[in-house]
Design a protein around this nucleic acid. Structure first.
Length: 482
RNA sequence: CGGGGUGUAGCGCAGUUUGGUAGCGCAUCUGGUUUGGGACCAGAGGGCCGCGGGUUCAAAUCCUGCCACCCCGACCA
């Protein structure tokens, strides 16, 4: 058998080393995850991409419900007057909202914005509903899409419309709201690690980077292959900013009227972009097994030979009975070689090849997408072996991603060293920081690097801010961001 | 909003410099042989060359206006 030739396999995909942005575009197009629509920045998510989103939804939705949340649905359109009620919020979002100005041919008396996020419409409804502390907490979530008129768009990473979920909760006390904020952040971290196999840096946003209208924003941040960071989920403690602006009150235990404490949290289809850029390689996608729409593909060899199809069908049924998402590709149109390449590009975690020789020997050939290793396995007990292997692939992928992230994480002593390292080998920079927004702004203006996160897991790297020389008592992660 | 690029068959592209029958690869269809890393042979179909105006005997090609998308920056999940 001919040795695999790298060039032969990547003919359709630009290599990451050559041009990372082009690699990303090639991968999503060739693997049929999305297509561009007639409207700039709006994309069609095709079945293979949407199945990834469905698996993310299923994981999160289950965890939301396990933690007491219920789904509901709020309207797409928000009157301008509502959007304007919270000052910081409207300043943050006004530049990028889409407006509806006409109904049919009639000009509307008040224009309506297409939701960029739903805090305002949710709060206006909550203010009608809430009366007593006995009704708290409000634990609601919605699955929907939002629109933000972006100037520069990339499929999944930044689109003008994106799918997400947004949770909106009300609590009697500040302590409860803070607990909720962190609980939901932790569900995002758990989803990322257990489903996507992506290690996250977890912590709080600086004031400059926090959500418009939030008291505090918490975030999970992932590092991509090219050394840029991706904000992958956020949870906001909104305190009483919105509940006061929208006059949401309840009669408390003491009998006095009180404002509830408020949280919101969201994760979007952007996560799919993260999966591609954390795990992908020059052959295309590498799907983490629990997220993969297809976990195993079976490719029969010499399938017209007597008994081959019948044999692979028994394997298919056994795997399916174990709850494995399996596809048997017995189409006659394409050769086995074509199928190998196709499913490799699509990132299917395990490929099983079965031909007359294997049937004879009571084995199958099993190829791992993540390592590209190919070995033979006993036909007897195969489905159990595959279940174990899928879990092994998940943890190997997680560990590999973590190693890659750690290798791209660095410390430094001087601002010049920081600039040099950010240019020559971009990634996460760990550093002490003074806490001054002006210092942060200056670094961003000069280098394009921002504070991604003030991590919960702090380390003591000294007591001076290397950017301005002022005293510093907190460590931050900095990076260029998507 | 600045800089760059691209619009030609379902997809990817050549042809534009120097105007003269609209091409190539893949895909599709027909028949046959194949199948352990993108099979082969023979045949077939498929086009408002982004849109509008102009120059010319003649425009994918030259001039002009517009539109769209992609990439890189500034702004943002």
């Amino acid at each position: 058998m001919a040795k695999n030739n790298e060039k032969e396999f990547v003919k359709d995909i630009t290599t990451m080393e050559e041009d990372f942005a082009q690699w990303y575009t090639d991968v999503i197009k060739k693997t049929d995850l999305v297509d561009y629509s007639p409207v700039k920045g709006f994309m069609v998510i095709k079945p293979y991409g949407y199945a990834m989103w469905e698996n993310i939804q299923a994981f999160l939705d289950r965890r939301f419900k396990e933690t007491g949340h219920q789904n509901m649905y709020f309207p797409l359109l928000i009157p301008e007057s509502l959007l304007n009620k919270e000052k910081e919020h409207v300043e943050g979002f006004a530049p990028e909202v889409a407006w509806v100005t006409h109904g049919g041919n009639e000009k509307l008396a008040e224009r309506l914005c297409v939701r960029p996020t739903s805090e305002t419409i949710v709060c206006s409804m909550y203010s009608k509903w809430l009366t007593s502390y006995r009704e708290l907490p409000y634990l609601y979530n919605q699955w929907c899409s939002v629109v933000r008129w972006e100037k520069a768009t990339r499929p999944f990473l930044r689109t003008s419309e994106f799918l997400w979920q947004e949770g909106h909760t009300l609590h009697e006390t500040a302590e409860e709201a803070q607990i909720e904020t962190l609980k939901m952040l932790d569900i995002y971290r758990e989803m990322s690690e257990d489903l996507l196999a992506i290690p996250m840096v977890v912590g709080r946003k600086s004031d400059r980077e926090k959500f418009a209208g939030a008291e505090a924003t918490y975030t999970i941040e992932a590092l991509m292959h090219d050394g840029k960071a991706l904000q992958s989920g956020t949870s906001h403690n909104l305190a009483q900013h919105f509940t006061k602006a929208f006059d949401i009150t309840f009669q408390g235990r003491s009998g006095d009227l009180e404002y509830p404490h408020h949280t919101s949290w969201g994760a979007s289809t952007r996560l799919i972009g993260g999966v591609i850029m954390v795990h992908g390689d020059n052959r295309g996608l590498v799907m983490p097994p629990r997220l993969a729409p297809m976990q195993v593909v079976i490719v029969p060899i010499a399938q017209k030979k007597e008994g081959v199809i019948e044999h692979v069908k028994t394997i298919e049924q056994e795997l399916r009975a174990k709850g494995i998402r399996v596809k048997l590709d017995d189409s006659a149109e394409n050769s086995p070689g074509w199928k190998f390449n196709e499913y490799e590009m699509k990132g299917v975690p395990i490929r099983i090849e079965v031909g007359p020789r294997d049937i004879e020997g009571g084995v199958v050939m099993v190829a791992r997408r993540d390592t590209l290793e190919k070995s033979s396995m006993e036909r007897e007990g195969l489905s159990d072996s595959i279940v174990v292997l899928l879990d092994q692939i998940h943890s190997d992928m997680f560990e590999r991603a973590k190693k890659d992230r750690d290798a791209k994480t660095f410390t430094f002593d001087t601002y010049d060293e920081f600039k040099e390292k950010m240019t020559s080998r971009p990634g996460f920079a760990k550093t002490m920081w003074c806490g001054d927004s002006q210092c942060e702004e200056k670094v961003k203006a000069e280098t394009g690097v921002t504070i991604r996160c003030i991590p919960f897991e702090q380390e003591n790297l000294g007591d001076v801010c290397p950017f301005c020389g002022k005293p510093a008592n907190q460590m931050v992660y900095m990076a260029k961001a998507y």
